[in-house]
């Protein structure tokens, strides 16, 4: 069997590229990454959609072990079509497969091996040739049942592999093999009874949502303005004779009927349409309950008015009518929807603000002239003019001009940063001082801001495990409630002492009304929507809802030392002149000599000498690994390592001992050793405070480092970390994380580098700090854009708050719904307590409003 994929990688390990079938989402990527990282000997794992896993591992890791790890979590590694289809995978080291490194695309499943991929299951046997994702707006959904309906409608489209609908964000996201026809998605959504409008020219997604929401609000307001007063009159007409001697007689009943008709038919039109559609679709939802409840109340009353002889009468009385109930229910639910729509508008304003940070237009310089163009029309390489005070429209590199920029919206970093030609600037940051010309590099969804928005959207679009449960409950809930309502009717018909038909009917209607699962449907999404948007503004990006749940339950935080707890770059910590020498002189000469160098140690020296007038250096010669020589003020200066200075001074080795954790640079001139400079990686200013806050949150903090214990100890002490795991090889980081997990801890790993990626994937929650590499950011579940470790504590505290609000919301929803049902069914009737349909409607509307209001607390 030919081995094609394993090859020596740059880092010395062996690299294997495997095709992976059945992955549809980031969740799958996470599972596969985790599985591969846990194979002993694996150093680095990179899994990407549509289906590739790149693994760097030791030479003794068999390919079969990797394949087995992938298959164990439910995904497939397709074989080369030519290979023997039933050859056992674990048999030989080769496995017979050929990675996509040669461009050979897997064709079909060679043999049915392993369990089918977990959610969402593949539809048909179509392998993931090219997976594409498409997201369209969906409006008109009002509860968790609608979510199911839309998802099923989308899954019916050929080629669609998974569909998820976010009720709060009003979006449907679909993954499919091959390209997805957006019109097909819209058609499916509209056929299911919902709307998916196309954006007008120049209209952004959010404008579209805003437009839909304001149309919704004005629709509801219109109906409320008309139906509200009518219903109030009906209620007065119905109630007044009960509490006062006034008697309106027969005309009062007719007036009630005439006034209720428009309320029920026009005001409640959406409920009626929704009810009819739900029966046709065989998918019950909240409108089914409301429509049924109001129609039964209204229909009964009309019948009682027109043909009282058809209904049983009690002791010669006219059968009672319930016009006021029908009218009040319609108005109360309209009011609930209205308040909810307004609150939701406020909730999504947070994202809107984020989007508004990206300018829509840019001034592009072509030839001599400036052209004002839409940002979408800028292409990489275009020169964009930015005036002082403006936001920079694109990610790019400064080509002309000097300024400082405020990049706080993108990075969360509040201090202005100086920029000069050659420096990178991020779209969305504010140009504070000078006019700039920026050469565009990354645009649209590739830009830093675009990536942030995508992560936020993904997090909001993903469904928390709690929510998945709520959705499932909701789809069964409605038929069950209808059953309970019918049973209530039957039982009270038999049990009621007087007016059996009437009390049976009233209670059945109350059950229908109180049980609406709308609050259940919005409990989680609204909290996530508000919470993640606020997090994003603080520079905390959470990838999905499940990670948010995990983040709230983490109990140990593992921090990588270099680059995470520390700055990751050396800075000068001491100047030690030889006896009789002046410390300032030593530094001045060293800095002058090092000024032109890009070496990190040289930068540290020059930075330490900032503010000093440095003389010019001539004849600078660098000796790699040794140091450099230069002529400064006529003197021949050497700056470099112990070995370098010994050579330079022909054998005279410096006497002072090396210091653990610090790097020494020796400075000599005129053939004599003058002193040494000590540089060390120092902890970030925010580290100490961050560690203290994490401890306050009840978390253990562990420092993980490749340095020796002696070198790591001072840093740990300074940061306030008590537990240090030192001498860790990069490839062992993930193992240490897993050891902590094995002892029953929930581990958050904070890292920044490529070498942290396996540990980030292995941890329950990977958090990448913003200065980190792209790989770390892609692997981690939480990205912290601020270069401030306080963000770690902020992120965990935020997740806890969001989780708490989600639980409160579910509690609100469940209490209203489930506690309401037995009350409405008349369980407490023997004790004289009966929940009338009108109060049921009020309780139901209240539950939605309280859930949304509770979620809005997160925005503060």
């Amino acid at each position: 069997v030919e081995h094609v994929t394993p090859r020596e990688s740059d880092s010395g390990g062996v690299e294997t590229v495997l095709p992976v079938e059945g992955m549809t989402c980031d969740h799958c990527v996470g599972r596969v990454t985790k599985a591969l990282s846990s194979v002993p000997g694996v150093a680095e794992v990179q899994v990407s959609l549509p289906g590739t896993a790149r693994v760097v591992h030791g030479p003794d890791v068999p390919r079969a072990a990797l394949i087995e790890a992938i298959e164990d979590v439910g995904y497939d590694v397709p074989k080369e079509p030519g290979a023997a289809p039933v050859e056992p995978v674990a048999g030989g080291g080769g496995g017979g497969g050929r990675g996509p490194a040669r461009g050979a695309r897997p064709r079909g499943r060679a043999a049915a091996r392993g369990p089918p991929p977990p959610p969402p299951p593949p539809r048909g046997a179509t392998p993931a040739a090219t997976m594409s994702r498409q997201s369209v707006p969906v409006y008109g959904m009002h509860c968790a049942s609608c979510v199911n309906t839309v998802e099923h409608a989308l899954l019916e489209i050929p080629g669609v592999q998974s569909a998820y609908v976010n009720l709060a964000a009003q979006r449907a996201t679909v993954t499919a093999a091959g390209d997805i026809d957006e019109t097909a998605l819209r058609k499916a959504i509209e056929d299911a009874g919902y709307q998916s409008p196309v954006a007008k020219a120049g209209e952004r997604q959010l404008d579209l949502e805003e437009r839909a929401r304001s149309e919704e609000i004005s629709y509801l307001r219109r109906r409320l303005v008309v139906a509200g007063p009518l219903a109030a009159i009906v209620v007065t007409l119905a109630m007044l004779p009960m509490v006062s001697p006034v008697d309106f007689g027969a005309w009062g009943l007719w007036a009630q009927a005439a006034l209720t008709l428009p309320v029920w038919a026009w005001g409640g039109a959406r409920f009626l349409r929704g009810m009819v559609a739900s029966f046709r679709r065989r998918a019950a939802d909240m409108y089914t309950l409301i429509g049924l409840g109001t129609s039964v109340a209204f229909g009964w009353s009309v019948l009682a008015l027109l043909a009282p002889s058809w209904l049983p009468t009690h002791e010669g009385h006219h059968p009672p009518v319930y016009f006021e109930t029908a009218a009040a229910i319609v108005v109360l639910i309209l009011l609930g929807n209205f308040l909810e729509a307004r609150a939701k508008g406020r909730a999504s304003r947070a994202i809107r603000e984020l989007l508004d940070l990206a300018p829509r237009r840019a001034r592009v310089i072509r030839g001599e002239a400036e052209f004002d163009v839409a940002v979408e029309d800028v292409v990489p390489g275009d020169l964009v003019a930015v005036r002082p005070g403006e936001r920079i429209p694109v990610d790019g590199v400064v080509s002309v001009g000097r300024t400082s920029v405020d990049a706080s919206v993108v990075t969360g970093e509040s201090l202005p940063v100086a920029k000069e030609p050659g420096d990178e600037v991020l779209g969305g940051s504010v140009n504070l001082e000078g006019a700039l010309r920026v050469e565009a590099t990354r645009l649209g969804s590739d830009s830093a801001l675009g990536r942030i928005l995508r992560l936020v959207e993904e997090a909001q679009g993903s469904r928390a495990p709690v929510q998945r449960l709520a959705d499932q409950v909701a789809s069964v809930f409605v038929p069950v409630v209808m059953s309970i309502a019918i049973a209530t009717f039957g039982l009270w018909y038999v049990l009621a002492a007087e007016d059996p038909l009437v009390s049976a009917l009233v209670r059945a209607v109350a059950v229908l009304i109180v049980a609406c699962p709308c609050a259940l449907g919005i409990a989680t999404p609204t909290a996530l929507l508000v919470g993640t948007a606020r997090g994003a503004r603080q520079g905390i990006l959470v990838r999905d809802a499940a990670s948010l749940e995990t983040a709230g339950s983490v109990d140990v935080v593992v921090m990588d030392k270099t680059g995470t707890l520390t700055i990751g770059k050396p800075s000068l910590v001491a100047v030690e002149p030889m006896p009789g020498e002046d410390a300032d002189e030593v530094l001045r000469f060293a800095a002058a000599a090092e000024r032109g160098s890009e070496h990190p140690l040289a930068l540290a020296v020059v930075q330490a000498a900032a503010g000093k007038a440095l003389p010019e250096a001539h004849d600078v010669t660098a000796k790699p690994g040794r140091g450099l020589t230069a002529t400064v003020e006529g003197r021949k200066v050497f700056v470099g390592s112990r070995r370098g200075v010994a050579e330079h001074l022909s054998g005279e080795a410096p006497g002072a001992a090396e210091v653990a954790g610090k790097t020494a640079m020796y400075v000599a001139w005129d053939g004599k050793l003058r002193g040494r400079l000590l540089a060390a990686d120092t902890i970030k200013a925010s580290a100490k405070e961050a560690v203290r806050r994490l401890r306050e949150l009840g978390l253990d903090v562990v420092m993980l480092t490749g340095d020796t214990a002696a070198a790591a100890e001072p840093i740990a002490r300074e940061a306030g970390v008590t537990r240090v795991i030192a001498d860790v090889l990069p490839e062992d980081k993930a193992r240490h994380v897993r050891e902590l997990q094995a002892s029953g801890r929930k581990v958050a790993m904070v890292g920044d580098g490529l070498n942290d990626a396996p540990a980030l994937a292995a941890a329950d929650l990977g958090m990448a700090v913003g200065t980190g590499t792209d790989v770390a950011l892609e692997t981690a579940k939480v990205a912290l854009l601020r270069d401030d470790l306080g963000a770690v504590a902020d992120a965990i505290a935020m997740s806890r708050r969001i989780n708490r609000v989600v639980r409160q919301n579910l509690f609100f929803a469940f209490v209203y719904n489930t506690a309401g049902i037995p009350l409405a069914a008349g369980l407490l009737a023997p004790f004289g307590f009966v929940l009338s349909p009108m109060f049921a409607a009020a309780a139901m509307a209240m539950s939605s409003v309280s859930v949304v209001t509770n979620s809005l607390r997160l925005a503060r």
């Binding site: 065989r282 069950v480 019918i486 039957g490």
Partner: peptide, 30 residues
């Protein structure tokens, strides 16, 4: 129990079955 009470109870049972079959049955949208 009067005959019409029995009739209502039977009607309720049939209605419950119908609702559940319709919305939760094999061809429903669930």
């Amino acid at each position: 129990m009067s005959p019409d009470e029995i009739a209502v109870l039977i009607g309720c049972v049939v209605a419950i079955l119908a609702v559940n079959l319709w919305f939760l049955g094999p061809r429903s949208a669930r």
